[in-house]
Write a protein that binds this DNA or RNA. Structure first.
Lengths: 248, 248
DNA sequence: ACAATAGTGTCTTTTAGACAGTATTTG
DNA sequence: CAAATACTGTCTAAAAGACACTATTGT
């Protein structure tokens, strides 16, 4: 991956860089934990799938650039979810055209619409996270596979110790909705009664409304909740045994 | 902080950036949780204290640049500790001279020597983390105060759920040494017997040697340990009640 | 002998995890 | 009324937290 330096290379050779933001936008699409990818129309990696993103402008920081790209790429007026910086990828040859570093971000939102393919002549769609890396899944451009792997792990672990799971479901929501979020993101169902106990005993994670939902299905009408002010779950809500893949 | 864009600004104006790495190097200096800062000799911010760092070269990634700076700035041959990326800071006006983004890193190591002031005509020293932000502490240049705050929180939280605390003490070490690490970093002493139980019940966190240390002091000779392969502590070791400052 | 330190054991409280049981609504 | 769903309650096991107690070594 690393480029070979010429013989007369002096490490105080500081080239100009392009600085880009890349976005790992996650949602629950038809209940399936999914990520937004765009199909590349041009070389390099034409036909492969890439993270949406773009360059940081002269008068904005990376976060502003990410918000800007987010509304452009998802086609929503005001992106209704959460955005945070993930990590910066800087391998010298990550883009064969020029030296560019990518400040990757993670975004979460409920129920985003299927992106309009025609907006800028790029094909864009949701991919099930579970299909990535399989033969049903996309081939990823650049170092985007590495970025996506990091992003998925970030989301899966961050809903353990923060209230971010509530960002995946529109308000108001039921406890079953939240349970579906955890199940979709983690890939296995936590115990619903215990989840409910934990969520409700975390001050400020959710706020009960006095309304109930009409699910159309039989059974009692479930209570509706809204997001609270709290950001942390303490102590965390853990995916115990299922968790054998550790990070540093 | 954000620069005003001119009237005719087009966001597809993508200027060249400088890309730097900044280092938050932490150690236990005489038992005190400390960070390495260098005094600036030139404008801007002459006389203020800054994080060590430098530009990323043409043929290296940020991690390589950080390792390079680390050995240069600490004056050790091979830096004996842990290094990881923290976050990237990209505010347009963070450096008044030019547009430069900083990929900040966190480094941890045991007992680093006091840096030689004369190496490159810059004054460099360890500052007690507790003195930062007080009148005994340094004034920080650029946006380095923000970076340092993020870095401190990263270290304090990361020794909860990883084995990184063992990076702060030379091998071999005693359980009291580890206890001193947690005490210094967190600012309060966890219960020693419970800490010991937790550390020893985490498979691969430490490996007992069959040796004991001669402390010079009275009391039994404590057993010596080395670092194990494990990186995660699961479930985490938490700073319970003392922890009222939460992060997102 | 005494004081300081290392390390073990034990008791209590809390929490997670599993799951039974009850209530509510629709077909 | 049956079936599915929402939700509460209960039991058990594990872990954290507090702290007593024993053992070892130097003064």
């Amino acid at each position: 991956m690393s480029a070979r330096a010429p013989e007369d290379y002096n490490p105080s050779d500081y080239p100009p860089f392009g600085v880009a933001v890349d976005l790992c936008v996650f949602t629950l699409h038809n209940g399936v934990f999914s990520i937004l990818l765009v199909e590349r129309a041009e070389e390099p990696y034409a036909g492969d799938w890439a993270l949406p993103g773009g360059f940081v402008g002269a008068y904005e920081d990376a976060m502003q650039a990410a918000w800007r790209e987010l509304t452009e790429e998802t086609g929503v007026e005001r992106f209704p979810g959460h955005l945070e910086q993930l990590k910066t990828y800087t391998a010298p040859e990550r883009d064969p055209r020029m030296r560019v570093v990518s400040v990757a971000h993670v975004a979460l939102a409920p129920n985003l619409p299927t992106p309009r393919a025609g907006s800028d002549a790029k094909n864009a769609r949701w991919w099930a996270v579970d299909d990535l890396g399989t033969e049903d899944g996309p081939t990823l451009a650049f170092d985007h596979e590495e970025i996506v792997v990091d992003a998925i792990e970030r989301v899966r672990s961050k809903i353990e110790y923060t209230t971010l799971a509530t960002q995946f479901t529109p308000e108001p929501f039921t406890m079953s909705d939240l349970h579906r979020v955890y199940t979709a993101v983690w890939g296995f169902p936590p115990d619903l009664p215990n989840l409910q106990r934990k969520v409700q005993s975390t001050p400020g994670m959710v706020v009960a409304t006095d309304e109930t939902a009409d699910t159309g299905k039989r059974g009692p009408r479930p209570r509706l909740y809204r997001r609270g002010d709290a950001t942390a779950i303490h102590p965390p809500l853990m995916r115990s045994d299922q968790r054998r893949a550790d990070e540093g």
